[in-house]
Design a protein around this nucleic acid. Structure first.
Lengths: 331, 331
DNA sequence: CTGAAAGCGCTTACAG
DNA sequence: CTGAAAGCGCTTACAG
């Protein structure tokens, strides 16, 4: 056993303040009614003793915590550290803490979920990973609100927050056509992600309507993936006039590969990415891309969770937040 | 109030297994002695009911959790997402969860610490930020082990894990001299970080011994900072033959700025970074750098915390883990 | 508004 | 090894 500094409890505060322990509790419990006089006495005593309510005793009774579980897979994509930072800042301001879980698999594992269940998290955000229904039954049964961030699942079992991927990719297609491309390519991210599928769908629909030649390649949302795919395209001899790459980090790999082979961007080939990560604006790359409105997406997620945490409704919707095309020098 | 699914407790398991609640508790508490017969009965009953010990009730008594607080500031530097991922993976494997705190200030704030104290974390890792002594008194008093990761503080009040910054920067200096540089520059990161100071100290000592001209610049460990500092250096007309940049992300900014001004790397100027982030190996950059041994640094931190969490000793030391020079095409 | 008391789900001496 | 009981620090009906 550790020998600990004397732990200040509500009882100690009560004694010093000359009130009951219940009254101390009421001062720290939102919504309870206490007279100003009692409140002042309690707060003064609490300050003197350095009292802080024990979150665990609290959670034991209320069966609630102020912990948000955040599950993230692709921390290597610079898009996600920014997302993490914004979520942490937003929730910390609201008095909530972030329990961070990094999953290695495309699909979230039972262990990852168990970690969150063990700590009885008040809400869950899953970014960048899919999940099977049975894994989340626990959350539903316990009325823990859940948001899929930057991913959606076709059935309407989940609340999801995404960028307007379909519309965005249609606009990107139109933009490349306007720029005069008569032969284009799409480089997909992981095939099992909704983002890659939606971006492919929107892009393809417009391209096909305009009788532009389209080649599709599958990659994996990494720099190396983009680089290798571009090398493959180059090896096929007929480099397309425009390439829409499903995310920025892959697009940077594509740019580097084309440069190594002295293919001029944008003169010979135009490149468009997706995300608008910081590096896209670096002078070396100056990548034309679609900006994902992270701040708005985070806001939307936080608002939903906060509402559902106050009173669980189980409401689900696929929310799409509008981004915008950022034109730089690769087109 | 939420209407919750019936919560399975140790009592329920005890009833089904035909043993006392204490016995159920003993099965789940490491170190307690239970007969195999009892254990089997309990585990069977627990499985049938889907029992999971309540962490909060547990923590209330033991005054311990399986939560590690991880404080991070510079998540924008790609070095840190990798650190975060490795810590999360390592601790999850050991059954510990990560409470993530992102601080915005160079110095950790009282609020950040309060967040960790509220959840009675078992251990704390602080990366990339400094902290004043008074803020951490709470941890000491409560015997919560603490590690400074990639930062150290001159007094020996803290256990810290760093790369061998001093030795590394001496070697980098020697390397640049060997390569024939007779005029060099050092671009510092945030002046109040131990990493930047140590790297400057080691580099300077060797450079001065060899009568090589040295100019020093202060920047801020960001890409933009590196970029702007390089522009300033260029404006001074006499671009040094070698530049040691205190971290990679700044070094990439330096490389981009020099390229924009058509200064040949490494022919006219050689660049050495520090960290060996993923991007340093990208073909566009191919940056010579010092590899920070993240895996070993994480291991060292985890081992220390695990030991101190079992039995707190308060032992402190400044541990330095050896990295290595990675020669690429900027030198 | 306030206090006394029950109880959340565990761990842990204490007997046996 | 095992059970009955006390107690961790709170919240929350229940009276007053």
């Amino acid at each position: 056993m550790r020998i600990l500094k004397y732990h200040v409890t509500a009882k100690d505060v009560a004694k010093l303040a000359g009130v009951s322990q219940s009254s101390v509790s009421r001062v720290y419990f939102e919504g309870a009614s206490v007279s100003n006089k009692t409140r002042e006495k309690v707060l003064a005593a609490a300050k003197e003793l350095g009292y802080r309510p024990n979150e665990f005793a609290r959670s034991l009774i209320t069966n609630r915590t102020k912990i948000i579980g955040l599950v993230m897979k692709g921390i290597h994509n610079p898009f996600y550290p920014e997302v993490l930072k914004q979520f942490t800042t937003a929730f910390n301001k609201l008095g909530y803490s972030i329990l961070f879980v990094s999953t290695n698999n495309d699909e979230i594992q039972k262990e990852d979920i168990d970690m969150l269940r063990n700590y009885n998290v008040a809400g869950v955000i899953i970014t960048d990973a899919s999940l099977s229904l049975n894994v989340t039954e626990d959350f539903k049964e316990n009325q823990v609100p859940l948001v899929l961030f930057n991913r959606k699942i076709d059935n309407d079992q989940f609340y999801s927050v995404c960028c307007n991927n379909l519309d965005a990719s249609e606009k990107i297609a139109k933009y490349l056509i306007e720029k005069g491309c008569s032969k284009v390519a799409y480089i997909a991210g992981n095939a099992n992600t909704s983002t890659s599928r939606d971006r492919e769908k929107g892009f393809t629909s417009i391209i096909e309507k305009n009788n532009v030649t389209l080649n599709k390649y599958t990659s994996d949302y990494t720099y190396e993936g983009g680089y290798k795919t571009a090398k493959k395209i180059i090896a096929e001899k007929e480099v397309p006039e425009g390439i829409f790459v499903a995310n920025d980090i892959m697009a940077l790999g594509v740019v580097d590969a084309l440069r190594e082979n002295s293919i001029m961007i944008p003169a010979e080939t135009k490149i468009v990415g997706f995300d608008n990560i910081e590096m896209a604006s670096w002078p070396t790359y100056n990548l034309t891309t679609w900006e994902q409105p992270i701040t708005k997406m985070v806001e939307q997620t936080v608002n939903y969770l906060m509402t559902e945490m106050v009173e669980f409704s189980g409401y689900t919707e696929s929310v799409e937040v509008n981004g915008a095309l950022i034109v730089r020098k690769t087109t």
